[in-house]
Structure formats: structure tokens, C-alpha cells
Design a protein around this nucleic acid. Sequence first.
DNA 1: CTGTTAGCGCTTTCAT
DNA 2: ATGAAAGCGCTAACAG
Lengths: 348, 348
Amino acid sequence: MARPSHPPNADSPPKRPRLADVAKMCGVSAATVSRVLNQDAKFSARPEVRQRILEAAATLGYAPDLTARNLIRGKTQIIGVFGSPEMQVGEGINNDAFAGIADAVRDHDYDVFFELTSHHATDSSLPSWRFDGAILVQAPPATLIDDLDHRRIPYVTINEPVGQPVASILTDDVGGTLLAMNHLADLGHRRIAYANAYPGYFRHYSITERHGTIVSFCQEHGLTLVPGHDADFQDGEAFLKNAVEQHHATAVICYDHRIAISVLGASYRLGIPVPGTMSLLCYNDLFPVDRVYPAITTVAVNAREMGRRAARVLIEIMDGQTQPDDVTPVRLDENLIVRDSTAPPPAN
Amino acid sequence: MARPSHPPNADSPPKRPRLADVAKMCGVSAATVSRVLNQDAKFSARPEVRQRILEAAATLGYAPDLTARNLIRGKTQIIGVFGSPEMQVGEGINNDAFAGIADAVRDHDYDVFFELTSHHATDSSLPSWRFDGAILVQAPPATLIDDLDHRRIPYVTINEPVGQPVASILTDDVGGTLLAMNHLADLGHRRIAYANAYPGYFRHYSITERHGTIVSFCQEHGLTLVPGHDADFQDGEAFLKNAVEQHHATAVICYDHRIAISVLGASYRLGIPVPGTMSLLCYNDLFPVDRVYPAITTVAVNAREMGRRAARVLIEIMDGQTQPDDVTPVRLDENLIVRDSTAPPPAN
DNA sequence: CTGTTAGCGCTTTCAT
DNA sequence: ATGAAAGCGCTAACAG
């Protein structure tokens, strides 16, 4: 049983109505229809004609072909958002960054699209699309960057210093790490462990920045960074057996919230009280760090603000309000949010 | 230090090179350039000419204007993905659904874009763009659906039965709920509590389906569903005080993983052993249900497969391989994943 | 092998 | 107040 509107042997392939169809139906020219439908300001049509056009358009179900409109206008009013091929939209801070982009764009006449299919079988990296601007979230493929440069499409980068963007928004991981380390040092911790990134994580400057800052802080302040800090994170229990049981760390810093949750789960399995025996702290103030028990102290990356800033700068440039003279990389502060998982080390 | 490529006082606004520019530079026609650059199969150019064209294009930094190409080809090869205005891309099962869409599209000549800015200040709901097809993930605004119908753009819906899609992919919440209930009943639970959705959640058919199925299962099997099951979820501790401490439920089902995490955290604060005193079970097999302690038993919605199926069907229809005769709503099975948070009720 | 020509569907002067 | 006409940049017949 076929749908009435779509007979299988359709003599008339359901073709979308054109501007000319509406014009013909009303006995006016296409130009007039265009002007009426676009509510052209400096133009008034006879009410009777206007009415006829509106009705005809509705009857036919006319909708303009945006491809044609974009061609003649020379722009699409679309901002493309791109990430690395491995990137998950819901992963880590990305979701917040997107929300920030949406915040900034809300009152402007732009649409924002995120590409879901980063890696293509096809050769060309840019999609069959024309963007007026782009936002790059975390290391997109080099070919994409080349393509953007090539096509003279302005772009800003979030959380990744690549290409020749018109602006670049980063987060101050060094500063955030210092907040965390000072917090632990102030509490009296002297033996620290660091649960580094998962091996599967794509390389990111935050990995080296966080680790490097922790290492140097410990050196400068005479703290002990127990072995294992430079290995990829594999498993919560193995990590704690080494770091806490064997090397007596009293505080564990995790590269991100996911690792922290795994470590916290492992602490229960091994019977290590948190924060009694071991304090726990991680980067990324994301679900579910504030809902687990104990709630986890975190270094918060303000990803939403990063998204906002990025989109705002890009829009200013696209609207011609700003010249992309120099790329001034913005570094946003990170915050320390102290919760229940950090406390002074055990007395013994 | 200004960028060499972008002198601040540019007399020549950096205009993108056109096909004609390349043609002129090579002393050939635009058509020839087009054919060479598009690697037209049934066409061979003199190697010398081809070489000249390639070089000229590279020199000028030529990239085709996709808007024009799309106009003449009459299609964009783009699939748009839309969600409700409130929807977060990283929220719940969305991320998996997107991954599934990407899976399916990978080997096809389509690009997929997700709209990040659902609610516009402008009147028109569809962006200034032309899609060849669309995938709707969770109740998009009615105006969008009208627009799609209007523009004769085929679309499929995921997890939301709306509009007149060419296909519709749903999940079998009734079946999943029965798996969960039977599991608890088999373990010997007789007093069940249900932590329903947060008030902020946008309405979704799963809310009524899950709740309704639990209610009727309890009735039919003589189980007690303790009070509070029809109220919005507010707070883990308040919920447990009522459900477990006051009404002696031995098992708690949560509408989703987020609520389950809150309830689990509250169980620690209130000193209620899980699963010793109270079993815990939730929908959505998402981070971090398998990493917390105890790992949570879940009803898994296969969102990735939903995304795959949706995209696959849509592509088949867009490629003309399938006629959208009747919309046969697909209902995908849910799975029960038993972990450590469910056990027989206490003996007393 | 390659150039010429005719549009794709719409917007926008320039006339009337 | 409205129509005619000229493209936007590219591609695809159709010639040669």
C-alpha cells in the first residue's frame, strides 16, 4: 500500500515548486513574488497582489531554494564547527563548549552546524558546503585546516593551538594545576600521585601541560611525585595498588573526571577511605563529580565561556566589525572547586 | 606584527579566486578547468594542459564555490540532524545516536551536520541551507517539522514519533522495563520504588512508557510500588528517606543514569548499603554506571544502533534505492545488563 | 581533446 | 507598483 501522495509509478516526480510557479499562478513576475515573500522593506505591493501571492505560495507549499539564494547573496550565514575525527560530541568539555557557542550565536543571524562525520572515505576533507566561518574544537585534521586557509574562510580555534586562526581560545592549564597543587600542599600532602590520561586519548596539549606543571611543582616544593605518573592510565585498582598501597601517596590527581570516577570506584573495592587515607582531585567539573560520594574536588575548565568567546570573536570578524590583525590567543582562567574528596593526609 | 597574508590596509579585499580566474591564467576555458579539477572520468585532457591547470589552481588557491555547485547539481549531499531546542548534544543517549549516524554515513557520499542553534530569534526555523535529508533526534519544534514537510525533505525520526517521517526508529521501553521488573521479581523483591524523571526534562514518551509499565507490572504481579513514583525527582536523599526508610522499598529503579548516580551518592550519605539493603537499577547504560561502586545494573538502550538504522534508511531513500511506501516504525530491543547493584532483598 | 552555450533558482538594479 | 533582464559561479550538453 503506497502513500497517496507518492504513487509508485508517479508520472510527475514530486518536484518542489519554484518561484516561477508561484508567479505564474498569480499572473505576476517572479521579481514581485520574491519581494513580497522576502518582506522587502523599501517596497510595497498592492495589498490585493500581496494577498494573492501569499496564498499561492501557501497552496503550492513553496519554500525558497536556499542554495540559489546563498549563491546570489554570496554568503550562507553559516558557521561550521569541526573537531578531530575521534572526537565525541558528548565527550568531556565539548558539550559545554557547544553550549557556549550556541549562547553567543543566539541573537545573531547565523546558524551553527557541527560536523558529525569528520573522517571521510572521499578525498576532500571539507564537506560539500560553504561556510562563512568556522570554529575548530580540538585538533581537527590538518587537511581541514589547509582547506579552510585555502578557501579563505575565517576560523577560530578552541582549546587547540593549530593553523592560522583569526583568534584562539585556550585554557590556562598551568594556572589551574597550580591551584590544585597549592591546595594539596596547603592541606599538608607530601606524597602525590598522578593518574595520567588514558592511552586511547588523542594527544592534547593539556596532557603535557598538566603533567609538566605537576612535575615541576613537586620538584620546586620538595614534594614527592610517586612513580607511575608518566604512564598511561589503565585501571583504577592497579593504579591505586601501586600509588597508594605501595608508594604511600596521600593524594591522587586525575587527568580528568572519567579517570577520577574509576579511581574512586577502585578505592571502594580496595577499601581505601577517601578522603581519610587518600585525597582525590581531578580536572573537569563535569557530571558526575559533584554527585558521587564523596563529591570530588575539581579544577574546572570553563568550556562554556570558551565557546562563547570563540563564537563572539568570529562573528565580529565575519560581520566586519573587527579586523583579524593579530591573533591574540586568549587564555581563560581555571577554577578550583573544593568538595569533600580532599582533606588533610592521615596523621600517622 | 601583522600577518603577511592579511595586510591591515588591504586595497584588494581578499576575494576568493573563481574558476574563470584559473581558466584565464591557463588560457583555457572554464569548462576544461572544471573537468580537470573534478577528475571527470569520461574525459581526458592533454597532460600538459592538465598540469598547467593544476598548478594554476594551486597557485591561486582556488577552491570551488560549493553553493554554485550545489545549485546546478540540485543537491547538497548533506543530511541535517536536528533536536529539540533544549537538547544537549552530549546528553544521555544522544552522543551514541550521533556516533551511530556517523557509522552509517561513513562509506557514503554524504556529510552530516548537527544543528547546534535550535532556537532562533528569526522567524524561519530552518537554517539558510538546503538539506537533502534530515534526521530528527528527540522532539524538534513543530515548526521545523512543518518546514521539512513543506520543502519535501525526507526525514527519519529517532526515539520520537513525530511528523510524517519516511521511517521512525524507536526503542522498546516496554520490553526493557519488563526485563528489569522480572529481574527484580526473580531476585525476590516485593517492594519497589521508582525515581521518575527530573522536572526539567522535556517530556518524552519514555517517561510515560517506563512509568506506566512499572505500574501495571506491579499490579499484575502483586508487587508494591511505594509512594512517590509519580512525582518528579528532586533530590537523592529526600527520595531515599521516603522510599526506603519510610516505605521500606528494597529495590529502586531510576528513570536514567543521572538520577541513579544521585541516588547512589545519597545511599552512602544515609548509610544504606547497596545492594545489601537496597538494590539499584536504572535505564541507560552510560558513563559512569559501570565504573562506580557498586557497578549499576542497567537497562541498555542501543542508541548507536538506532542512529545507524535511521541513517541507513534515510540514505537508501535519498539514493532512490527504496521507496518510502509506508512508514514502518522500528522498535529496537533493550537489554538488561546485570551488575553488582542488584541482589536479593535483605532476609529479615 | 576542448570551447561554446545554456542554464540551476533566486535576487536586484534598472526601467516602465 | 511591477516587469524585464542580468547575473551569482559552476557544470553538462553539444559542438567542433
